[in-house]
């Protein structure tokens, strides 16, 4: 169970990205965070694995205080949380296989990993992760030779390699076309359903939210403006969805389609 209490983040330049965000999440949920660009979704996700340091508030996960964790403890927590990024964030010059293997970095001997040496089991697991996302053929190619959809599969394989208890996905399909979006989210959903992995995922498109979410949080200017279950969101109309995204988006949307709203 993940408990977030009064989480706030103010950046060095004074931007208030998160203001007193609180919510609880049971294990095995598929939480979708919706909100405009700049509403704090990415910051919230990155606070959970401390890629961004929260200014105040607390995050407790299965009894462990994430905010207080340091050094080896923090790395152990991070190794249990997989992360998938909008721009894939693969190491472009490394092979696909090495990118997947990097998912194990939190659990292997530092000195061995420095010259890219992993155990036989690590290699077997990496291939099975690649098999799960269907790109075993590409294992020895350089990551930047792959198409966008294939790169995101590598990103997911890297997360699978972590054998995570939770997966954070920061707009994982925003750079991909709609057909690929379902494929990618399908992999994440399978992890969620088959292994009971908690998923926290930010999404833009209402139909995707309705299809995958078991719970939904709406963020606006760093504050939670909507909480609902999967059922709630499936009954939501476009109009209500727009309200979460704010009047501003709606007004722009009246003239021509706004990319941020994704409607």
């Amino acid at each position: 169970m993940l408990e977030i209490k009064n989480l706030s983040k103010t950046y060095g330049d004074g931007t208030k990205a998160l203001k007193n965000v609180s919510f609880n999440l049971e294990d095995g949920e598929f939480l979708v965070i919706i909100g405009l660009s700049g509403s704090g979704k990415s910051t919230l996700l990155r606070c959970i694995n401390r890629l961004v340091e929260p200014t105040s508030g607390s995050i407790t996960w299965n009894g462990a205080d994430i905010c207080a964790a340091k050094g080896a403890d923090l790395r152990k927590i991070r190794s249990q949380i997989g992360m998938v990024f909008q721009h894939f964030n693969l190491v472009k010059r490394l092979s696909v296989l090495n990118n997947v293997l990097s998912g194990r970095l939190g659990r292997v001997n530092t000195w061995k990993s420095l010259y890219y040496k992993f155990s036989k089991k690590d290699y077997e697991d990496a291939f099975s992760a690649l098999k799960k996302v269907g790109i075993t053929q590409q294992a020895y190619k350089r990551a930047d030779e792959l198409s966008g959809g294939q790169q995101q599969r590598v990103g997911i394989a890297r997360a699978i390699m972590q054998e995570p208890l939770m997966v954070l996905a920061d707009e994982p399909v925003a750079s991909l076309d709609p057909v690929l979006a379902h494929t990618i989210l399908g992999y994440i959903e399978r992890m969620n359903q088959e292994q009971n992995i908690t998923v926290i995922c930010s999404l833009h498109y209402l139909d995707l939210v309705q299809r995958y979410a078991t719970r939904v949080i709406g963020l606006k200017d760093g504050e939670i403006v909507y909480r609902g279950t999967g059922e709630d969101i499936r009954q939501m109309t476009d109009r209500e969805f727009k309200e979460i995204y704010g009047e501003e988006a709606e007004r722009v949307n009246a003239g021509k389609p706004v990319k941020g709203a994704g409607l």
């Binding site: 249990q80 721009h87 693969l90 490394l94 090495n98 990097s102 939190g106």
Partner: peptide, 19 residues
Amino acid sequence: GPIEAIKATGADSIQTIMF
């Protein structure tokens, strides 16, 4: 981006530099 991703896997700073 990749630095963030490697850090997120629980890698320490030497591993992050190397990878």
